[in-house]
């Protein structure tokens, strides 16, 4: 039995389908990210778990109990909002203790739990401050502590870092993961930032237009994307239309070049595209690999990485090289050979 189960969830707003047949099993202590472009239904799905919206169809169960239509204040699910949503009239300590106070916990215990929560976020000395006297990063940490103080069964975070500066964002990201692991807290994290999803998650749910595209570990999402959308949304990728020579063997034709790929993943589907990541390409000719020749179209120097675009019969192939001081960077217009293994190339 899964800890949290979402089964065939649909949500429509008048005629607009926001979430379309969403199913997911989450294990206890798991850190799940919902990743996808803006408007793909991440927030709506999260809000249905929280109880702020009710599904048009489908069911949600927590520990085997159906909670689909339970009001949010009866679910014991913690929520962290993008805008922090701290209560401006209360101090940090009062904010953190709020959930305990409304459930009539005695004052001694509230005090102990607030102290514990403050030390969890390393803000022991700031309990008496008002939210308006804190930085954005501090406010979001208080919001996290407030959600955790009620010892929720699930923690939900909706783009909690997107209002913060880049540096604070990185710091807080690590802190969220540390606290989540320390408490073994079952967590759903909504983000449109692939780097956040890849670094934080046990599993990522990639969503597009209300549908689940793929559910997998970060490395499998990156290395073995199952749809064209996932492949192009997560990381950089070369995707080209191809014609199939031998579907069973994974051999295709790219503008007259025979390409051998990893056998395609989807059973029965007819592949029409090949995909290869820029970092899988190597300069030069290599026997036994897929070899292509073209002209250098552009060279972009990105610091640690040099991104080179090669024009292979009208297909613009991106290649990433790690920067080294003695790296000889080709010039625009040069003839250039690249190769990649059949294992790094797959069909969609």
């Amino acid at each position: 039995m899964s800890y949290l189960n979402l089964k065939n969830i649909y949500k429509t707003f008048s005629s607009n389908v926001a979430v379309d047949d969403f199913s997911l099993d989450i294990a206890q202590g798991e850190f799940i990210s919902f990743l996808g472009p803006s408007g793909c239904g991440k927030t709506t799905t999260l809000r249905m778990v929280a109880g702020f919206e009710y599904p048009t169809a489908g069911s949600i169960a927590l520990l085997g109990n159906e909670i689909t239509n339970l009001p949010p204040n009866k679910r014991n699910i913690g929520m962290v909002f993008q805008s922090y949503a701290l209560f401006p009239n209360m101090t940090v300590a009062e904010n953190i203790g709020f959930g305990l106070k409304v459930s009539n916990t005695n004052t001694i215990e509230i005090k102990a739990r607030v102290t514990e929560a403050l030390s969890l976020i390393h803000m022991q000395d700031l309990g008496g401050r008002y939210p308006g006297q804190l930085s954005g990063g501090q406010q979001q940490r208080v919001a996290l502590a407030r959600a955790l103080a009620i010892k929720p069964k699930v923690l939900l975070l909706d783009e909690p870092l997107s209002a913060l500066d880049a540096k604070i964002r990185l710091e807080l990201r690590l802190e969220i993961r540390r606290i989540q692991k320390q408490l073994n807290m079952t967590t759903i994290y909504v983000t449109h930032d692939q780097e956040e999803a890849l670094t934080l998650s046990d599993r990522i749910v990639v969503m597009n237009q209300g549908r689940v595209e793929q559910v997998d570990t970060p490395s499998r999402i990156y290395n073995y994307p199952s749809t064209e959308f996932v492949a192009s949304f997560v990381g950089h990728i070369n995707i080209f239309p191809v014609s199939v020579i031998d579907g069973g063997e994974g051999i295709v034709d790219l503008s007259g070049n025979k390409i051998r790929s990893r056998k395609h993943m989807q059973e029965g589907a007819i592949p029409v595209h090949m995909a290869v990541r820029p970092e899988e390409l190597t300069p030069g000719h290599r026997e036994g690999a897929n070899n292509l020749t073209g002209n250098i179209h552009s060279v972009q120097y990105l610091g640690s990485v040099v991104r080179i675009q090669i024009d292979v019969s009208g297909n613009f192939l991106s290649m990433d090289l790690f920067n080294q001081r003695d790296l000889s960077i080709p010039m625009v217009g040069d003839r250039f050979d690249v190769n990649f293994s059949s294992d790094s190339c797959w069909l969609l």
Partner: peptide, 29 residues
């Protein structure tokens, strides 16, 4: 001047009912 909707939802997710939200969050602000 306050984000009524989100503050209400924050209160709800922490277990507060309507009256508690109205009297301890909304009216004081």
């Amino acid at each position: 001047s306050i984000d009524v909707k989100t503050l209400t939802e924050a209160g709800q997710s922490l277990g507060a009912n309507w009256l508690q939200i109205l009297f301890t969050i909304i009216i004081p602000n």
